[in-house]
Amino acid sequence: MYLEKLKLRHFRNYHEQELEFSPHINILIGENAQGKTNLLEAIYVLAMARSHRTANDRELIEFEGKEGAFIEGRVQKHLGSVRLSLALTKQGKKARVNQLEQTRLSQYIGNLNVILFAPEDLALVKGSPAVRRRFVDMEFGQIDAAYLHELTKYRTILKNRNSYLKQLQQKKADDRIYLEVLTAQLVKAGAFILEKRCYFLAQLEQYAAKIQTQISQDKEQLKIEYKTSIHDQIQKLSRTEIEACYTQTFQKYVDKEIFQGTTLIGPHRDDVLFKVNGKNVQIYGSQGQKRTTALAVKLAEIDLMHDQTGEYPVLLLDDVLSELDGKRQTHLLKAIQDKVQTFLTTPALNDVAKKLIKEPKMFYIHKGQIETGDKTKTQIFYPHQK
């Protein structure tokens, strides 16, 4: 798949903009704080119905007192084109597919699959468990609508259960039967999520391990493990067995949960471990190994999504070339050339990129204004550059 057209109105620093893209590599070039990342963000929001930079949709609306922002795109797939539109207002959001409003966002997400790789994505390896859980949920949610739906349901049940545990803690309630009902609901949804996560991570590992081996010239072997408190070998259990483990563990923890007023086990507490040559790369890996692992996992998503959906995703690269050395830049650019539609932001192309990127479509961005064309446009916006 690829994004053919994009229309913006009152989004960030774009008052009104309409663009057509190459199905191959699109380079968004300009100095800092001009709107390159805002444009990338608009594509991400069109796909995911949320931003990767803020949880507050109001921040996406043009600051000059506008009531809302509007994003529209036309996506080309093997079976034809799909028109997506997303209206963001202070009252909420409305998502449409081919003019039909979607009652659930889980029905909307997945029509345009995107993979974002930004400098902060190195935190995928060295950051907190919450970062890795979010990565799993955002990426796998695009592939499997049922996973996304069950995740939304799980979060609702979890919120209700935590609220009731707080009431029990404060002696404002004493009905443990109701707690058991909420626990049973959470167990069912949690087991579904955990089983799906283990399946997708096993698939991801197959692709990522090959890429890690290639980049490291056969020096590094990558393993991805799912870490949960209910069982050491969770990947080997069926969903029914996972439900049984959850039930037993909740029974053991119930008094402690009431004392603390919160749910202590479940997918919202789990983690993903990346191991290189048998060692946790977060703790024992070098900076180079961490960068290679993050790159390998991101590139592996491309093939995983294609394998699961039959379509290649759109790749969004937000100023990542500056964070990678020549070897990793070369591997990245060779991997995406003629394979996936790519949007790459950069202040200027370096020698590696100039050598490896074939016939990109250039977009020159300055203060929310965009021009397309050849390299002579650089002189329009940045006359000091040669």
Rank of each mutant, 00 (worst) to 15 (best):
Val125Ala: 05
Ser106Ile: 06
Ala33Leu: 09
Lys66Val: 07
Leu116Tyr: 04
Arg12Ile: 03
Tyr14Met: 11
Asp121Pro: 09
Glu67Leu: 10
Arg104Ala: 11
Arg53Lys: 13
Tyr108Arg: 04
Glu18Tyr: 00
Asp57Ile: 08
Asn98Val: 12
Gly35Asn: 08
Leu105Val: 13
Phe70Ser: 14
Ala69Pro: 10
Lys93Thr: 05
His15Pro: 00
Gln91Asp: 15
Gly68Ala: 12
Ile71Arg: 01
Leu84Asn: 03
Pro119His: 03
Ala118Thr: 13
Glu16Val: 06
Ser22Trp: 00
Arg104Cys: 02
Glu67Pro: 12
Asn26Pro: 11
Lys77Pro: 03
Ser106Asp: 08
Lys90Leu: 12
Ala87Ile: 05
Leu86Tyr: 09
Gly110Leu: 11
Leu28His: 01
Arg58Pro: 02
Tyr14Ile: 12
Ser81Ala: 12
Gln17Val: 10
Glu101Gln: 15
Val82Gly: 05
Lys36Cys: 06
Ile115Trp: 07
Asn111Arg: 10
Gln34Lys: 04
Ile25Gly: 07
Asn113Gln: 15
Ser85Pro: 07
Pro119Arg: 01
Ala118His: 03
Gln102Ser: 13
Lys94Asn: 11
Leu84Val: 11
Gly92Asn: 05
Gly68Trp: 02
Asp57Phe: 01
Ala55His: 10
His78Asn: 12
Leu46Pro: 11
Arg104Ser: 11
Ile29Asp: 02
Met48Gln: 10
Gly65Lys: 04
Pro119Gly: 07
Asn111Tyr: 03
Ile27Cys: 07
Pro119Lys: 01
Phe63Lys: 11
Arg74Asp: 15
Glu62Gly: 09
Ala87Pro: 03
Gly73Asn: 05
Thr37Tyr: 04
Gln107Ser: 12
Gln91Met: 06
Glu20Trp: 00
Gly92Thr: 08
Ile27Trp: 02
Ala55Val: 01
Gly110Ala: 09
Val97Ala: 10
His24Gln: 13
Thr89Phe: 03
Gly30Ile: 02
Asn113Asp: 13
Gly73Thr: 09
Thr103Cys: 00
Glu59Lys: 12
Glu18Asn: 10
Lys126Glu: 15
Ser51Cys: 13
Phe11Tyr: 15
Gln107Glu: 15
Gln17Ala: 08
Gln107Pro: 03
Lys94His: 00
Pro23Arg: 11
